[in-house]
Design a protein around this nucleic acid. Sequence first.
DNA 1: CTTACTGCAAACCATTTGCACGATC
DNA 2: GATCGTGCAAATGGTTTGCAGTAAG
Lengths: 151, 151
Amino acid sequence: MKKKKTKISSAEMAEKSRCFTGLCRENGLKVTPQRIAIYQELLKTNEHPSAETLYEKVREVFPSISLDTVHRTLLTLSEIGAATIVEGTGDAKRFDGDLAKHQHFRCVKCKRIVDFHYEPLDNLKIPAEIEGRFTVLRTTIYVEGLCDSCR
Amino acid sequence: MKKKKTKISSAEMAEKSRCFTGLCRENGLKVTPQRIAIYQELLKTNEHPSAETLYEKVREVFPSISLDTVHRTLLTLSEIGAATIVEGTGDAKRFDGDLAKHQHFRCVKCKRIVDFHYEPLDNLKIPAEIEGRFTVLRTTIYVEGLCDSCR
DNA sequence: CTTACTGCAAACCATTTGCACGATC
DNA sequence: GATCGTGCAAATGGTTTGCAGTAAG
């Protein structure tokens, strides 16, 4: 099953924007033109943009918007579940000297990282679509949640 | 199968340090006391420290070392395969408005992120050891390598 | 009319870079 | 002795914060 490469249709866009409005209201958030503009630009792309990149795009339709607003809004979107952060935690790099195969659990609250090892996760099968088109160097899985002392 | 919680034995440490010296030489790197100190501190912990955290530790045994050296050395270690970066890419946050289950391939060179979807990866089984001790909120897998235009 | 959002500027923090000195090979 | 690594300081880049003005509910 392939992901489609085409951008979403205007019907889908309208539908999603309507849901978004509801989602904001449910969360006690005001529906501002900036938020809508940012959300719609995010939906229109499959480039997984950074705040900066999206800012450039949104600026075309909303010239007076500020980068800060884009930053803040994207974080808000991820908090209400309208978007996800697919890269960059904002935290400092962390290092591991243990070279044995293992996986990591990461507490979203205290940032503690706990090692574990579960063989079935060692060699996950990657679809041929990806293996063929790209050179796969490594596959990492990480499990996030609340650790025993934080929950 | 559990990961051991105990720090490595001094025999293991000696063995690994010897290998490390060889690894540096193979890569044309000089074996400096700073590098050894940083590497050994990294081996001694299972806390997956940041440069800053490790700096504090290394300082105890090597008071004149600078934070920059710790930064640089850790990056070097990950380049020669003596350590891995388990969190923080150093890149800006990136966002995705597509809420459908899917996975990401990330090109290590151009940073492009490509969506794909492969059902077996949607609901990976997490060992009971983790499920029981922690509250798992999400499991993410990401595949890294070189994309078609970069390889 | 109240509360939240925006835009701007300044602050922050992790990381990087330039450079001169010092250490390793 | 040549080259690479280190330490220091300054620069950078992404992100966050404080605040006053503005807009949404």
